[in-house]
């Protein structure tokens, strides 16, 4: 989950490239319109189900009944990990339980340090945060310490992984966290 344009799809593309084929994965991707994200993610070789919420009333989030319908297109027995890329929105997706085992929020450094306190529910509900686009830090007046402090003010002890989905800097700890979550679930 994240606001629009924070890098969810690029992060997923790079993540899938690193965990596949060890962790067999599938993706449900939600967008109000277009199949651009699904087309990009399908390149990774993972089965991708696109949900356009237009069909469900142009909703601002994916709801459980939408996921229930989408998973009928996926061979769940054949996969270790099902990733749901929610609608780009820092408000509504946090509110609705879709049956997930873990939730991750992507926050990019171009969005401003105080987003966690402006959208507390999202940061409260998630299990980990990815602070994305750190390759841009030299060009921004961004107080990274303040951003992480804000995240921890909402959700103390939440893991924050500083990454660049473009350069893949910082990916190892994030991938290890994700793999450990899959292991926990399987075992």
């Amino acid at each position: 989950m994240s606001s629009p344009g924070s890098g969810k799809t690029t992060t997923l593309e790079k993540t899938l490239a690193r965990i596949m084929p060890d962790v067999t994965s599938a993706v449900i991707v939600g967008d109000i319109c277009t199949t651009h994200d699904a087309d990009r993610l399908a390149q990774t070789g993972a089965p991708v189900v696109q949900v356009n919420t237009d069909e469900f009333g142009g909703d601002c989030h994916l709801a459980a009944h939408v996921i229930e319908k989408a998973v009928t297109n996926i061979d769940l027995e054949a996969i270790d990990l099902l990733i749901v890329e929610n609608i780009g929105n820092l408000v509504c997706p946090a509110e609705f339980d879709i049956g997930e085992d873990a939730r991750v929020v992507v926050l990019s450094v171009t969005e401003g340090e105080d987003k966690p306190v402006k959208y507390p529910l999202m940061f409260r509900e998630c299990d980990a945060a990815l602070l994305n686009k750190i390759d841009l830090l030299p060009y921004l007046d961004y107080d990274k310490k303040a951003a992480v402090a804000y995240i921890h003010q909402i959700h103390p002890d939440m893991p924050v992984f500083e990454i660049s989905a473009k350069t893949e800097d910082g990916f190892d700890p994030w991938i290890n966290w994700l793999k450990s979550k899959v292991d926990q679930k399987i075992n």
Partner: peptide, 14 residues
């Protein structure tokens, strides 16, 4: 307010 830390002992385990 958006502060989810114990007001008394500062613990984050709430």
């Amino acid at each position: 307010e958006p502060v989810f830390v114990c007001q008394k002992c500062n613990s984050g385990s709430i």
